[in-house]
Nucleic acid binder design. Structure first.
Lengths: 339, 339
DNA sequence: CTGAAAGCGCTTACAG
DNA sequence: CTGAAAGCGCTTACAG
């Protein structure tokens, strides 16, 4: 075994190397790197030549140490990893955020905090200066991550209304309650009278707000018309099965996510109920699952692209010292075949 | 607008603050942070108290600047983002790598390089010292990312045989060719005589090596028995449709990924062919799709957990200065219902 | 427009 | 076991 150092240590050129090759001072090299202001044409050309000759790449740690900025932002999903892959909503958000951030030359780092231990490690990591801010998708009431980020003073924005912390957390949400109202009202308008609901987890905004919207229209009676899922497809199947037992005479069901709705349709069809003839099914999200079910889903559209764009905008503002704020985006009814 | 600084700048305590509170020198605080060797019980206790009192968290940039280590590793997927979510293989690998790395207290950063522009930004980012090394999943021949990482001297390991660069790139692969042989041989052994194949892209190791294994058994004749997909479900559907036109008398098809196999089954059933009675279908991967198709897939098992573990092990060794190496893992036939 | 110098927050030999 | 000091590679007022 030869006594070589790891190659990256051996060879990496520094700013002084570039300066030497270009025949200028380190300060001038730095100015070129940071926009080229106050640099003569000649110096600029010399430095650029020297950079490509030496293969110089800035040392981000050194730069960040002085600027106090890292140039990256974290996308933190605190859910079991499988959900990231099962639920297209995360994909939609991730795509949107990455794009918008790329325009600012900021890298998005995706991190999955599945276990409590993960959350701790990530809390430390995020807080050690690796990122300038964080995007929190998936938000459960009482999440320790929010508390930690707040305590550390790291800028972050959460996706969806942060239950009980609306006043001091920046967030962007779509209008869950109004969307739920629209759907329930629509189901009524088509003549349905026994409208059930499959809600999301009741410690999430999508869980409580969509249920509230449903109740605004359908009232509070009949607890047997209510079942709760956890946003997975399997939970949609199971909740639908329970509803069928509790209220066999239901003629419509509002399912609070498209993925769960796909599961509910499977259960209904397996039980011999026709959709929408026997039971109308309404979803929520309007992601790409909505057009792959048979029949295609009538659902509530969340404005995914705007949601991502607003999250990024607020985060960058927050990083620059802006105060807390919130954005609520409107939702729309999209009528297809399932209701 | 008030003239406040961003909150994180305002409040973050430094090592000197901790030292002052604990009544020791900065060096002692550092020793406590780095394992607590050569520190008296009393100093240790005082420092620990001071740390929790001040809420101190190490500044990773400062630390990295001197240690030349960042404590994170990148998981780079250079594919359109949708593939990350559609194909369970990535999920399997990601889960495995995250777990193993967490054991080393290293954070895994997931990055998706969908476009050429993305690849450039990520190349720069990765190379600026943000990570100590990279895990490259999805590997296409002639990928510019491999070239860039090599030039920069950043340690990395690729998943799958790096076509044409086996000698100077560290990689871990499963034995694609042998797996393909096993499957083809098995199909023969059940009496099938017109065995078609749906390959992966021919610029990937899974594309060429599995085709080679198939040919080892089935020979080179009949080009109409060969169709190529791109590992997506849709491409499996389309390729199967082509095969059905080109060779309507086929009685078996070896599909080089489970996801494509799921697509192929859909096409076959839609065309009125029974699986496996009329056409036997063999997959490759043995991921969780294999048990959700109807009938469930007979397939080749890739050892996902070992694959992740080996990738991480090699990467860490490489970071510590080890030479290039390669690991080839065995694959096994798993017989279920589709063949 | 340009250079010299201070300083960002750490780690790590080196003395003691 | 402990402290003082050098140095990691940058940026940014400050003079000129």
């Amino acid at each position: 075994m030869t006594v070589t150092e790891p190659s990256r240590l051996r060879s990496r050129p520094t700013m002084d190397d570039v300066a030497a090759v270009a025949g200028v001072s380190r300060g001038t090299v730095s100015r070129v790197l940071n926009g080229g202001h106050n640099v003569s044409r000649q110096a600029l050309a010399a430095v650029e030549r020297a950079i490509s000759k030496t293969g110089y790449v800035v040392n981000q740690h050194a730069r960040s140490l002085v600027t106090q900025r890292s140039g990256s932002v974290a996308f933190i999903l605190s859910e079991p990893q499988d959900r990231l892959f099962e639920d297209p909503n995360f994909n939609n958000l991730l795509r949107g955020c990455t794009q918008v951030l790329a325009g600012h030359d900021i890298t998005l780092l995706l991190t999955v905090a599945a276990t409590g231990e993960d959350r701790q490690r990530i809390g430390r990591w995020v807080t050690a200066g690796h990122v300038d801010g964080a995007l929190l998708v998936s938000n459960h009431q009482g999440s320790p991550l929010i508390a930690e980020l707040k305590e550390r003073g790291l800028p972050f924005v959460v996706c969806g209304r942060p239950l009980g912390q609306e006043r001091d957390v920046t967030y962007v949400a779509s209008d869950d309650r109004d969307g739920a109202r629209q759907m329930t009202e629509y189901l009524r308008s088509t003549g349905r009278r026994r409208i059930a609901i499959i809600t999301g987890p009741l410690d999430t905004p999508g869980g409580v707000d969509r249920l509230a919207g449903y109740r605004d229209i359908a009232g509070h009676g009949d607890p047997e018309l209510i079942a709760t899922g956890d946003y997975t497809r399997a939970s949609g199947e199971a909740a639908m099965a329970r509803l069928l037992t509790q209220a066999p005479d239901l003629d419509a069901v509002f399912v609070c996510s498209d993925l769960m709705a796909a599961g509910a349709i499977t259960t209904l069809q397996r039980a011999g109920r026709r959709v929408p003839e026997d039971v109308a099914v309404g979803g929520f999200d309007d992601n790409n699952i909505a057009t792959t079910t048979k029949p295609m889903l009538t659902t509530i559209r969340q404005p995914w692209a705007r949601q991502s764009a607003e999250m990024v905008r607020l985060l960058l503002a927050h990083i620059d010292g802006a105060e807390h704020s919130a954005v609520i985006l409107p939702t729309d009814l999209v009528v297809r075949d399932s209701a």
